[in-house]
Design a protein around this nucleic acid. Structure first.
Lengths: 153, 153
DNA sequence: GAAGATTGAGTCATCAATCTTA
DNA sequence: TAAGATTGATGACTCAATCTTC
């Protein structure tokens, strides 16, 4: 394997490792009684959106879900009372998903469980300075389109 | 939100962003005709294991899959001719998954597609030095149990 | 014609229960 | 009794097709 390939391979190995870690964290979160990563992500996206509402297609793009996958995710969340569907004022093709107070409460209830999981999985191996470096690099490495909707203001 | 919480939140945001990025990369890979992340991960694990074979329960742990999930994943891969099941010589409860030449070939066929995807998603936002820092930190940040089976020797 | 959302069919994961062997 | 693997039932995501609106 050439030098370039072996560098790419190292990245590939870390990609695979990180994908597995994500599954492990998601498993931990569910076992501890928190909502799944996707649900948390959606609740958070709505919470930080103007007027706590967003078009279905926007949500699908942010979450990297298929349109039908998002439809069903919103179905389940609406059944739980965490979101509502509302017609779009200017485009009758489109629907808005709206966060309810119950949805916000659920996100807040899950936060401490997330905080624990994050500390458990990320906090132990790096010094505070290294953690800071890591965060800054990750932030720049991830595509703007995926980060901007998620970073705290 | 306290200062500590806001740090944790930043990590949480990056966790969510990275989970979404993983979905995006997996989608890209499939569209480009490569095997999925899980399948690649399994093929690679077997390829680097002694004698290209591993116990089912070990594989499940490395991949962060449930036992039944692994059973079915191996079912599909065996149907495709990429792995075989073999009895464990010392423990008749256990089975070994064995990589076939076809499985190795499939992993090798997918590698260039992975290389492209990695370059596209990871190569563009960081300088080579930053990339190196990032890799080193990621390597230390991820749990040993997940990294050691995946890093190139 | 294209964009936005949904539905049905198919795929793939999990949990709980079961069977065999240590 | 526990460990390892599998099976059946269920849940959740994708693709392709459809319907409405731009």
């Amino acid at each position: 394997m050439s030098g370039d390939d072996s560098k790419k391979w190292a990245w590939g190995a870390l990609l695979l490792a990180h994908a597995a870690l994500t599954r492990a964290i998601d498993r931990d979160l569910r076992e501890a009684g928190a909502v799944s990563l996707e649900v948390y992500d959606l609740l958070l996206a709505l919470e930080e959106a103007p007027e706590q509402r967003m078009r279905m297609c926007e949500l699908a793009e942010i979450l990297v879900f298929s349109p039908s996958g998002l439809t069903r995710l919103i179905d389940r969340m609406a059944e739980g009372g965490w979101v509502l569907r509302e017609p779009h004022p200017n485009d009758r093709r489109s629907l808005l998903a709206v966060l309810t107070p119950a949805g916000r409460a659920e996100r807040e209830r899950s936060w401490p469980i997330y905080r624990e999981a994050i500390a458990r999985h990320f906090g132990h191996h790096l010094s505070p300075e290294e953690g800071e470096t890591m965060r800054a690099l990750l932030e720049r490495m991830l595509p703007e389109s995926l980060v901007h909707a998620r970073l705290p203001r």
